[in-house]
Computed example of a mutant assay.
Amino acid sequence: MLIEQRTYDINPGTPMADFLREYSTRGLPAQKRILGGFLGYFVTEFGTQNQVNHFWAFADLEERRRRRAELAADPEWQDCIGVVRPMIIRWDNKIMYPTEFSPIRSLPVATDEPLTAFTFGAES
Rank of each mutant, 00 (worst) to 15 (best):
M1D: 07
E4L: 04
E4N: 07
R6L: 00
T7G: 00
T7F: 00
Y8K: 01
N11K: 01
P12T: 00
P15S: 05
Y23C: 02
S24C: 15
R26V: 05
G27I: 03
A30R: 04
A30H: 03
K32E: 13
I34L: 03
I34F: 03
L39A: 07
G40W: 05
G40N: 11
Y41G: 05
Y41S: 07
F42H: 12
E45P: 13
G47I: 02
T48V: 03
Q49L: 15
Q49H: 14
N50H: 15
Q51H: 06
Q51G: 02
F55C: 11
W56S: 06
A57K: 04
F58K: 08
E62G: 07
R64N: 05
R64M: 09
R65A: 12
R66T: 15
P75G: 12
W77G: 11
C80W: 11
C80Q: 04
P86H: 14
R90F: 02
R90M: 00
W91H: 02
K94C: 11
Y97D: 08
E100R: 06
S106P: 10
L107C: 09
P108S: 09
V109I: 10
D112S: 15
E113Q: 06
T116L: 12
A117Y: 12
A117R: 15
A122I: 00
S124H: 12
